[in-house]
Design a binder for these strands. Structure first.
Length: 442
RNA sequence: GUGGCUGUAGCUCAGUUGGUUAGAGCAUCGGAUUGUGGUUCCGAGGGUCGCCGGUUCAAGUCCGGUUAGCCACCCCA
């Protein structure tokens, strides 16, 4: 027997239903915040990803040369495609643009917990708005998504940081522009590596500064309130000009935190400069969502990336957005006992005698056309008992019994298979009766 | 790319110091059951014990390799 490729998953019906329910909640939650759906190609030019991240990223892509000699790759993330699409229409679109996508992505990595080679992501982005109103709504929408699954501030939280703060810090340390990526990378590793190992690694890039950077970065990463950030900024000893810019940034922090509080996100968001995100293209506020009661991979991550569209050759377009993966999210929901399920709808099993078959099949067609879910046994000549047994084992909620007694007066028996109770219903009223059945909680 | 653990029926697992034809529960299918289901009982199908090689009179069991899965590292878009 063939098996699925490493890191690729089969979805049998029981898993498929959960997955569809997940997508449905995603869709409803982000549409409630005014986002509209879009999609792009699963296959893109390899250069679209190299452009942003460099040649080494190729190792983690599914990529090949197509028959036309083009170097192509399965998309590992949505943002470059979004940037390309939005960039092409940027000048003609009314701002802000609020788009979301639910789609498959591919990365050639070693599979492990929370990580596969093909996963589905929800991407939610706001384009064309430079102000913190967009950052606030982006984070609020993320909270809406979590809450739509019944998760609370007991289950998850969002760590909010700001790359601009780190820019000020690097100004103060005197880190040159070409080294800043390494420093951000080091900050990202602070939670996982001890001082000695990290300083040693960092000193390969910034020399003797490494120790100072590490100790200062530790202090900034430990700040978790706005007053603390402001005090930290005053201690930097910036020039008057830079000081003014920093003050303006702190004012934006204040507006953002106020908006998040008013949008009901106050209990979910914590200031945490230790988050920087791995990607090069982030420019401002960045954030990641985590489970609260256990250590796990980030549930979602995002931030502001004002330069990406321009870098891809489009016009300057402000942007802020985030992504959430299906694997980690379903993991989290299972841990929290909040695994989503598709809505329960009545499902009917037709039970009939040989001489009632014709009438019954007529109703099968009519009820199915009316949108009811209707099935029946393929076995001819099976007794009513056999058919009912099949009905109860098939997972149907109700059996419709077509017997001579019922049909003689133009009725059928609608039997609730859970309770065993039956009720006679006029055949012409069947669709209406079944449509009114409410299975919630059953 | 590195390391640890694990592979026996569709699933969960037994399988003694190596010893005849590898078992159980659940699930599946059939029957008991000719107009009223879920229970119960009976029966059936389903395994080259992940794969290859070695040791041995004899390997599911011991050894080596390999492959797959899980977990961790690396990386994380």
């Amino acid at each position: 027997m063939f098996e699925s490729l490493p890191g690729f998953r089969d979805f049998y019906p029981e898993d498929f239903g959960v997955r569809q329910a997940l997508f449905q909640r995603w869709k409803e939650a982000v549409e409630s915040a005014g986002f509209v759906g879009y999609d792009g190609p699963v296959l893109e030019p390899l250069e679209l990803y190299i452009e942003k991240s460099g040649e080494e990223i190729v190792e983690q892509l599914f990529h090949f040369v197509d028959k036309g000699g083009r170097r192509v790759a399965l998309r590992p993330e949505m943002t470059p495609t979004l940037g390309r699409m939005a960039g092409a229409r940027a000048n003609g679109m009314r701002k802000p643009v609020k788009w979301y996508n639910i789609g498959d992505h591919f990365r050639f990595e070693r599979p492990q917990k929370g990580r596969t080679r093909c996963f589905t992501q929800l991407n939610v982005d706001i384009l064309g708005e430079p102000g913190v109103a967009a950052d606030a709504e982006s984070i609020h929408t993320l909270v809406l998504v979590f809450r739509s699954f019944g998760l609370t501030c007991e289950d998850f939280y969002i760590r909010l940081s700001d790359r601009e703060l780190w820019s000020f810090a690097m100004d103060a340390w005197g880190v040159s522009a070409d080294k800043r990526g390494y420093v951000l990378s080091a900050i990202d590793k602070m939670e996982r590596m001890d001082r000695e190992a990290l300083v040693s690694w960092l000193s390969e890039h910034v020399g003797e500064l490494a120790g100072l950077i590490y100790d200062d970065a530790r202090k900034l990463a430990a700040i978790h309130d706005l007053d603390g950030l402001i005090a930290w900024g005053r201690s930097l000893g910036l020039s008057a000009e830079r000081r003014e810019v920093l003050d303006a940034r702190m004012a934006e922090w204040s507006v953002l935190m106020g908006a998040l509080r008013d949008l009901g996100c106050g209990d979910y968001v914590v200031i945490d400069p230790g988050i920087v995100r791995g990607l090069a293209y982030y420019t401002g506020f960045v954030f990641e969502a985590f489970e609260k009661r256990r250590k796990s991979r980030a549930l979602a991550g995002g931030g502001r990336y004002d330069n990406l569209v321009g870098k891809l050759g489009g016009p300057d377009l402000h942007a802020v957005g985030w992504a959430m993966g299906d694997v980690t999210m379903l993991d989290c929901l299972e841990f929290c006992g909040k695994t989503p399920h598709e809505a329960v709808r009545p499902k009917l099993f037709m039970v009939f005698g040989e001489s009632e078959r014709g009438v019954c099949f007529g109703d099968v067609d009519a009820l199915r056309s009316a949108g009811c879910r209707v099935v029946y046994s393929y076995r001819s000549n099976a007794g009513y008992g056999k058919q009912l047994k099949e009905a109860s084992q098939s997972g149907c909620s109700h059996a419709l019994i077509y017997g001579p007694d019922e049909l003689a007066v133009g009725e059928v028996t609608v039997k609730d298979l859970a309770s065993g109770t039956g009720i006679r219903v006029k055949r012409e009223e069947l669709a209406a009766y079944i449509g009114a059945l409410d299975l919630k909680g059953s």
